[in-house]
Measured scan of single mutants.
Amino acid sequence: MSAKKSPEELKGIFEKYAAKEGDPNQLSKEELKLLLQTEFPSLLKGPSTLDELFEELDKNGDGEVSFEEFQVLVKKISQ
């Protein structure tokens, strides 16, 4: 996936994966893993990378990643 996506496209991608289980407005760690493996495969170099990335993105510590938290990752990789 190209990092150059419109905000609407990014929101659609986020919602597609977030709706798989639990809260449709939040990504669980498994949903984030699936999204990254599919859309940004070069970001995941191993299991520790996912854990570190999830911890970094989950700013409020609720165990899930909101769209706002996800946007931090998108901004970081599009620079």
Rank of each mutant, 00 (worst) to 15 (best):
D62K: 11
E39Y: 02
S28N: 07
Q37L: 05
L34V: 09
K20T: 10
V74D: 08
G12I: 15
S78A: 15
V65Q: 03
E21C: 12
P41H: 15
D51N: 13
L50I: 12
L36F: 11
F70H: 00
K76M: 02
Q37S: 03
E31A: 04
S66W: 01
L43C: 10
D23E: 07
K75S: 09
L73E: 02
I77C: 04
E69P: 02
F67R: 03
L73Q: 01
A3R: 02
D58C: 09
G61V: 10
S48G: 08
Q26S: 14
L57W: 13
K11S: 03
L36T: 02
E30V: 15
P7Y: 14
V74H: 08
E64M: 13
A19H: 10
T49R: 07
L34Y: 10
L36P: 00
S6Y: 01
K33S: 08
L36R: 00
F67V: 07
E15N: 08
L50M: 10
L35E: 00
S66C: 14
S78G: 01
S78N: 15
E68M: 08
P47A: 15
E64D: 14
E30H: 09
L36W: 06
V72K: 13
I77R: 02
K76R: 05
Q26K: 07
E8L: 09
Y17L: 01
Q26D: 03
K5T: 11
V72E: 05
S2G: 14
T38E: 10
Q37V: 11
S48T: 09
F14V: 00
L53D: 14
E52H: 14
P7M: 14
I13E: 01
D58N: 07
E39S: 01
K20P: 09
T38W: 02
S6K: 02
E9T: 06
Q37A: 07
L10K: 01
E15Q: 13
I13C: 05
V72T: 14
E9N: 09
G63T: 07
G22K: 08
K16D: 02
E56C: 15
E64K: 09
L27G: 00
E30W: 06
K29R: 13
E30T: 11
P41Y: 08
F40L: 08
E15C: 03
K33R: 11
A18Q: 02
L35H: 00
L32I: 15
Q79A: 12
S6P: 01
V72A: 09
S28T: 05
S66G: 13
V74W: 14
L73I: 10
I13K: 03
A18V: 04
Q71P: 02
E52T: 14
E31S: 11
E39Q: 02
L27T: 01
P24M: 06
E15H: 12
P24G: 09
G12A: 12
K29L: 11
L43W: 09
V65C: 07
S6F: 07
K33Q: 14
S78R: 02
V74Y: 14
L44Y: 13
E55I: 09
K29W: 06
E64W: 15
F14D: 00
E55R: 11
K5A: 08
A19G: 14
G46K: 11
F67H: 04
L32Q: 00
K11M: 03
K59P: 14
V65N: 02
K11N: 09
A18M: 03
S28H: 08
D58L: 14
E56K: 06
I13T: 03
E69W: 02
G46F: 11
L35I: 12
Q71K: 06
S66A: 11
F67M: 03
F54P: 06
P41A: 15
K29P: 13
K16M: 03
F54C: 11
E30S: 14
F67P: 02
D23V: 06
E21T: 05
K16N: 06
L27Q: 00
E30A: 10
E9P: 02
G46W: 05
S42K: 14
E9V: 07
K29H: 14
G63Y: 11
E39K: 01
K20I: 05
M1V: 01
I13Q: 02
S48I: 12
Q71L: 13
T38M: 08
F14Y: 13
L44G: 08
N25G: 10
S6E: 03
K33Y: 04
E30K: 09
E30Y: 08
L53A: 14
S42W: 05
K75L: 08
G61E: 15
Y17K: 01
A3W: 02
M1E: 00
G46P: 08
V72S: 08
S48E: 14
K4M: 09
D51W: 03
L10R: 01
Y17N: 01
E31F: 04
L44Q: 08
L50V: 15
F14E: 00
L53G: 06
K76E: 04
V72F: 09
E15I: 15
K29A: 13
K29N: 15
S6D: 06
Y17R: 01
L43H: 09
P47L: 09
L44T: 13
Y17E: 01
S2D: 15
I77V: 03
Q26T: 06
P24T: 13
S28K: 08
Q26F: 08
A19Y: 04
K16Q: 04
F70W: 04
S28V: 03
L50H: 06
K29Q: 05
S2E: 04
P24N: 09
D62S: 14
K75E: 13
S28D: 13
N25S: 09
E56Y: 07
N25P: 06
K4N: 15
V65A: 05
E55K: 08
K76T: 03
N60Y: 09
E15A: 08
A3H: 07
E68W: 06
L53H: 13
F40T: 04
G63R: 09
E31D: 14
F54N: 14
E56W: 06
A18W: 01
L27N: 00
S6T: 09
F54W: 14
S78V: 00
A19L: 12
Q79Y: 03
S66Y: 05
S42Q: 08
E15T: 15
D58Y: 11
L43T: 06
E64S: 11
E21G: 09
P41V: 04
M1H: 00
M1N: 02
L73A: 04
E55L: 14
A3Q: 10
S78Y: 00
Q26C: 05
I77P: 03
K4R: 06
G63I: 04
K5M: 10
K11I: 11
E30D: 15
K11V: 04
E56H: 11
D58T: 12
K59M: 15
K33I: 07
F40C: 07
E68V: 12
K45P: 11
Q79F: 01
K45R: 11
S78F: 02
P7A: 10
K45S: 13
G63W: 03
K59I: 04
I77G: 04
S66H: 03
S66F: 04
L53M: 12
D51H: 05
